[in-house]
């Protein structure tokens, strides 16, 4: 069993490595082809001599053919050197690591809020199917799903930060508890959409399970409501886990606008700035990190499937 798991993990790892390679080349090409030019962006619309432009192109090897540039980057990356940001002069790994922490904290908190809000509401709606409470929850979840996170963010700011003064208006805080305090509003703004999604998934699958024969039999045998619900919920685990994975990854990559609203120095704003600047080393670094994180989330979700539902198996069993 242990070796089978190992084989599964190695397979996943190899698959992820291939995805990373293909993605890194694809992204390199896209950034290379994107409009704009590094030397013009660095110099702005000030007058500049051709000499200065040539010096900048030489420093960043911008005149090399695409494949040579990519190869140089790849060789460095394989040796653990992600290069230096053209925009800031900072080593890419340093620039990314401080921001990755914040983005991970924000995504984790956002997903947690989405789970705490979405699953109980979904269960409540399923148990009161067709009644006013159900309809109310469904309408709210659709509203949550469709509300743009930055707009929700501004609303929360105006209400909870400025009017009531419960939360700070912007920034990432000074670390420790203060950091989490600062992340409550942005995480909530991000969680609203995810919670809507979770309500829909939870409600739909629970409603289906509650209609199953085993539930009717269980009730006929006189089992209590809570116990029946536990049976049904266990069978809803797969769709809920799927939705959780979706929520986590969408929060991870979708935090850009919320970061702007709350002035948070996360990966999203770094990625956007670097793409428009054509700062290839940083774009590559952030994109690869996000890819790895998403692969990890998917792996965790798959493993959770197997734990939650005995019918799902990640490793082929011998008969």
């Amino acid at each position: 069993m242990a070796t089978a798991w190992l084989r599964f993990l190695l397979g996943r790892l190899a698959g992820t490595a291939v995805v990373l390679l293909v993605l890194s080349f694809g992204i390199y090409c896209l950034v290379y082809l994107a409009p704009g030019s590094v030397e013009h962006t660095l110099l702005g619309n000030r007058p500049a001599t051709e000499e200065t432009r040539a010096a900048i192109r030489a420093q960043y090897h911008l005149d090399d053919p695409l494949l040579v540039q990519y190869w140089n980057w790849l060789a460095g990356a394989l040796h653990g050197d992600l290069g230096t940001s053209i925009r800031s002069g900072e080593p890419v790994d340093v620039a990314i690591s401080s921001r990755a922490t914040l983005t991970l904290q924000l995504s984790t908190l956002g997903t947690l809020f989405a789970l705490l809000l979405g699953i109980p509401a979904g269960i409540a709606a399923a148990l009161r199917r067709g009644r006013a409470a159900d309809q109310g929850i469904v309408v709210l979840s659709v509203a949550g799903l469709s509300a743009p996170p930055f707009a929700v963010g501004l609303l929360l700011l105006g209400l909870l930060a400025v009017k009531l003064g419960w939360f700070p208006v912007y920034g990432a805080g000074d670390g420790g508890l203060d950091r989490w305090w600062h992340l409550v509003l942005p995480a909530t703004a991000l969680a609203i959409g995810g919670a809507g999604l979770l309500v829909r998934f939870t409600r739909t699958s629970l409603v289906r399970e509650l209609d199953q024969d085993y539930v009717v039999f269980a009730r006929a045998r006189g089992l209590g409501g809570v116990r029946v619900l536990r049976y049904a919920l266990r069978n809803c685990a797969v769709p809920i886990l799927t939705a959780t994975g979706l929520v986590l990854t969408s929060i991870l990559v979708g935090s850009v606008l919320v970061e702007v609203v709350f002035a948070l120095p996360g990966l999203g704003s770094l990625l956007v700035d670097s793409v428009t600047f054509k700062d290839v080393p940083v774009v590559q670094g952030v994109a690869l990190l996000l890819t790895i994180l998403i692969a990890l989330v998917n792996l965790a979700v798959d493993a959770a499937y197997a734990a939650a539902d005995p019918r799902v198996s990640l490793v082929r069993r011998k008969r």
């Binding site: 930055f150 501004l154 700011l157 105006g158 930060a161 400025v162 003064g165 700070p168 208006v169 912007y170 920034g171 702007v260 609203v261 709350f262 002035a263 704003s269």
Partner: peptide, 18 residues
């Protein structure tokens, strides 16, 4: 010096006294 790129957030931050 805080970088606050969203103009609405800047306004709220001033209103809030931050």
């Amino acid at each position: 010096l805080d970088f606050i790129t969203d103009e609405n957030t800047r306004l709220l931050a001033m209103r809030d006294g931050s």
